[in-house]
Structure formats: structure tokens, C-alpha cells
Simulated assay, not measured.
Amino acid sequence: MADDTRRSIFITGGASGIGRAVARHFGDRGWFVGIADVNVHGMEDTLGLIGGGFKYMHELDVRDRDAWDVALESFSTAAGGRIDAMVNNAGIGTGGPLAELEKEEIDRCLDINLRGVLYGAQAVYPHLQKTAPGSALVNIASAAGMTGGSGMSVYSATKFGVRGITESLDAEWAEEGITVADICPSFIETPLLEGTGNRRSNESVRSRVVAAGLEITPVEEVAKAVWDAVHGTDLHYLVGKTARQLNFAKRWMPGKVRRQNRERTTLLGK
């Protein structure tokens, strides 16, 4: 059991990738870390990388609204009765022409990437109220939430949505002193790069990223951005050169971005 002054953070998708990196980053800095995922073995591996006893795991499917309440209440109890920050990180990728996607693929991506973020924000709100001012909700968005590309309609829809949720809650919770922010990474060194992003393709996302000459950013950079978001005042945090360049181009050269999107196939699609 933690004391009631140690700050705590709850992270979904904590079994690997960004979630694991964030858990280690905060754990190394003395926070009580709670992780959630459907991958129990992966969560055990994550906790094994965090020293000390201030850590906790809970099996959670973010699509289950009632399960959110149980998970957060359990973590709050373990952490000494407080939750200071939460990271809505759990998400999946999907790609390919919309006409070729099965209903189940569309629904699963929407439910995990978008509905899961809404459920998480709703469920954690009363906990963040208790530790405000200074509590924080951080949502993991994507550079794909800044512009849509061929073959990315569903995934981009979810990440555009995450950015919209962030902006809405920033306004909604500001008076209570709850920080709300999102992280917009480009291509990050995580296991998702080993997937194809498209069930009709055998080529990994990583090979397409490399072939396109784009950088792959260390996952630790995302963890640092989450730390900055919890302690900062910005709304959107860009991670990786591609994300920063895209943000600049969308603002100052939107026509060029549109032409490029129409001229090339997506890295996650065909």
C-alpha cells in the first residue's frame, strides 16, 4: 500500500510499447504506477522492469465501461486513495481501403481507440477531481490525427476524434484545475511497427517506413512528452520530426499536403 502523498498514474495499454515506456519513466521518478491491458503476461513483464513496490496491474478491456470503474477504484485503493494522472494509451492500428474493411475491423478500431478514450475520461474524472488542481488526463493521439491519408480513414477518424476529445475536455475541466493534453507521435519504435496495418498485406509497417525514408523515433521520447504534458500547460504535444513537419505543413501549406496525400498510397494501406 502506498502512502497518501505519493503521486500516482494509471496507464492503459501498459503491456508494451508506449504504455510500458511511460510506466518506466514515471516509476523511475518515484510515482506509484498502475497499468492496465488485456495482455496479462505483457503487464507482468512491464512491472518487472520497474524497481520497488509502488506498482500495480489490472486486466482491463477499455471497451467495457463498467470494468473501468472497477479498475480505477482498485488502483486508487492500492495507491493510497488517489489518482493524480491517467494516460489513455490503449489503441490498435488498422489500414487499407475503406471499401475492403470488414465491419468487425471498423468496429474494433472505433471501440478501442475512441470509445475507450471516452469511457476512460468519464471514469477517471471523479478521481482527478479529488487530486485537482494539478491532476492530469493525457490522451495518446497520433500524427494521423493531424491529416488523413489514403487507406487510413478509420484509424485517422479515431485519432482526429481523440484530439477533439482533448480540446473539449480542456475547456470543460479547466475551472477545476485538471490538465488535459494529448500526445501526437509520428512513427515510434514499438511492436506495432512489426504489424502490417492491413490484413491483405504481408509487408510490415516498419519496412514501409524505412523505404519511405522516414525516421523512427525512440519510444522514450513519447514517455518524456507524457511527463511534460502532466506537468505542463500545452494542449497538443508533437513527438518526432515527421509530426512536427506535418504540423507546420498543415498550417502553412495545406494545399501541398493535400496534393501529396492524393499522389501517394499510405504507409499503412496498400
Rank of each mutant, 00 (worst) to 15 (best):
2 A>W: 02
2 A>L: 07
5 T>W: 03
8 S>Q: 02
11 I>C: 10
13 G>E: 03
15 A>G: 09
18 I>L: 14
21 A>E: 07
21 A>G: 12
21 A>V: 05
25 H>A: 12
26 F>G: 11
26 F>M: 08
28 D>V: 00
29 R>E: 06
31 W>Q: 06
32 F>H: 14
32 F>S: 09
33 V>S: 09
34 G>E: 04
34 G>H: 10
36 A>T: 11
36 A>I: 06
38 V>R: 15
39 N>K: 11
41 H>Q: 15
41 H>I: 08
43 M>Q: 12
45 D>N: 14
53 G>W: 05
57 M>K: 15
61 D>N: 15
61 D>L: 07
65 R>T: 02
66 D>E: 14
66 D>Q: 14
69 D>P: 02
69 D>M: 11
71 A>R: 09
74 S>V: 00
74 S>N: 14
76 S>H: 07
78 A>M: 10
78 A>N: 06
80 G>F: 01
80 G>Y: 01
84 D>M: 04
85 A>G: 09
86 M>Q: 08
91 G>F: 01
100 E>W: 12
100 E>P: 02
101 L>Q: 15
101 L>A: 08
101 L>E: 01
101 L>T: 02
103 K>A: 05
106 I>N: 03
106 I>F: 07
107 D>T: 11
109 C>W: 02
109 C>L: 06
112 I>A: 08
116 G>Y: 05
119 Y>K: 08
120 G>D: 03
122 Q>K: 13
123 A>I: 10
126 P>D: 03
130 K>F: 00
131 T>M: 11
131 T>V: 07
133 P>E: 04
134 G>V: 02
141 A>P: 09
144 A>F: 10
144 A>V: 04
147 T>C: 06
156 S>V: 01
158 T>I: 05
161 G>V: 01
164 G>I: 00
168 S>T: 14
170 D>C: 09
170 D>F: 12
173 W>K: 09
176 E>F: 13
176 E>G: 05
177 G>V: 03
179 T>A: 14
184 C>D: 12
185 P>D: 05
185 P>L: 07
185 P>N: 08
185 P>E: 08
189 E>S: 15
190 T>S: 13
195 G>E: 11
201 S>C: 10
201 S>A: 13
202 N>Y: 04
203 E>N: 06
205 V>T: 12
205 V>H: 12
205 V>P: 05
212 A>G: 09
215 E>K: 15
216 I>R: 13
218 P>A: 08
218 P>M: 05
219 V>H: 09
221 E>F: 11
226 V>K: 11
227 W>F: 13
229 A>V: 03
229 A>H: 06
230 V>L: 09
233 T>C: 00
234 D>K: 15
236 H>S: 06
237 Y>T: 02
239 V>E: 02
240 G>S: 04
240 G>V: 02
243 A>C: 04
244 R>A: 01
245 Q>K: 14
246 L>E: 01
252 W>T: 04
258 R>E: 01
260 Q>V: 00
265 T>Y: 02
268 L>K: 03
